[in-house]
């Protein structure tokens, strides 16, 4: 599988700094796309090109060239990374175009993408050895270095804790409490709130688990599916020893109701909070009852590893 760190931060140059990898924004002239393209630029992300069919030749913010197709943008910038802001019903087309043009990391922001469309994009991504983050994700970020997503900058600070989250606002909320408690983040990956994810929780875990610089991990899950159970089992199987703390949203939600996210639904016992919490407990991963408790539990876990 492609290396997410290399895709996000490139190689180190001669003075020891990471290159700024070029990023393409698909849907850069839309309301949402332009707002967040601007914010990513402000954060220091190297937005090298935008794509909006019919607007090729124009410039975004007076400097970022816009192309009609992803292929044109890739040819001009040599970019391997794209973030997609198109409306959900156009996602399949936009993502297919990007993967065919050689994009290796595609961050899929749209909410409400039909599951079958996502599944088709995933099939193609497998063939192309590409990573899809999302759909319905806040994106991915290495604080202080690169932000490819819609997350606000303020909750995050560089550090050594990984945060993996199904939810966007809870990612911000929990990262904020971590930052306040002195735990910066090495990388944060939004899995997305859909039933089917391009990068599953276990895939995200595997992408980062061998990074020697990480000191701990926070997994923010929610009701629906069995991604949390599977990652907990995996953590036990590989005997991963670094401290992990989890949080699960939706413990008190009614069954068989979709709670805002397409994926947040308990069907029978499939997807219940109890099932997830008991698996995390088996894997010796404490589960916070409140977002604010995450940093406290993590501090406790880190303290123990020092002994």
């Amino acid at each position: 599988m492609a290396d997410i760190y290399e895709l996000l931060r490139g190689q180190k140059d001669s003075s020891g700094n990471y290159q700024k990898v070029p990023v393409i924004v698909q849907g850069i002239t839309g309301t949402f796309g332009s707002l967040h393209a601007k914010q990513m630029l402000d954060y220091g992300t190297n937005i090298a090109a935008g794509v909006t069919p019919g607007k090729g030749g124009q410039k975004f913010e007076g400097k970022v060239p816009i192309y009609n197709t992803v292929k044109d943008a890739v040819d001009a910038t040599n970019s391997k990374v794209s973030i997609v802001f198109v409306p959900a019903k156009f996602f399949l087309g936009a993502a297919t175009e990007a993967l065919e043009a050689g994009i290796k990391l595609l961050v899929a922001i749209p909410e409400h993408v039909p599951i079958r469309d996502t599944m088709q994009v995933i099939e193609l991504a497998k063939k192309k050895d590409a990573i899809i983050i999302g759909p319905n994700t806040p994106g991915v970020m290495i604080p202080g270095l690169v932000k490819i997503g819609i997350m606000p900058a303020s909750p995050f600070k560089p550090g050594n804790i990984v945060v993996l989250s199904k939810s966007g606002t809870l990612l911000y909320e929990i990262s904020n409490t971590l930052t306040k408690a002195g735990f910066g983040q090495s990388i944060t990956i939004g899995i997305g709130g859909d039933p089917v994810n391009g990068t599953r929780l276990i895939d995200a875990f595997d992408m980062v688990k061998d990074d020697p610089t990480i000191e701990g991990m926070v997994i923010v899950g929610e009701i629906g599916g069995d991604a949390e159970e599977i990652v907990a089992q995996h953590i036990m199987d590989i005997k991963f020893k670094k401290p992990i703390v989890a949080y699960i949203a939706g413990r008190r939600a009614p069954k068989e109701k979709r709670m805002g996210h397409a994926g947040a639904i308990v069907m029978g016992n499939y997807g219940s909070a109890e099932s997830k919490i008991s698996m995390f407990n088996m894997a010796n991963i404490p589960v916070a009852k409140r977002p604010n408790e995450v940093a406290i539990l993590l501090a406790g876990k880190l303290e123990k590893t020092k002994d």
Binding site: S167, L171, E173, V220, E222, I223, A249, G260, K289
Partner: peptide, 17 residues
């Protein structure tokens, strides 16, 4: 009432707790 499914679920959990 809140913004973001995860945050609203979390708020609902804490309220019920």
């Amino acid at each position: 009432v809140g913004n973001g499914a995860g945050l609203v679920m979390s708020t609902l959990d804490m309220l019920a707790d």
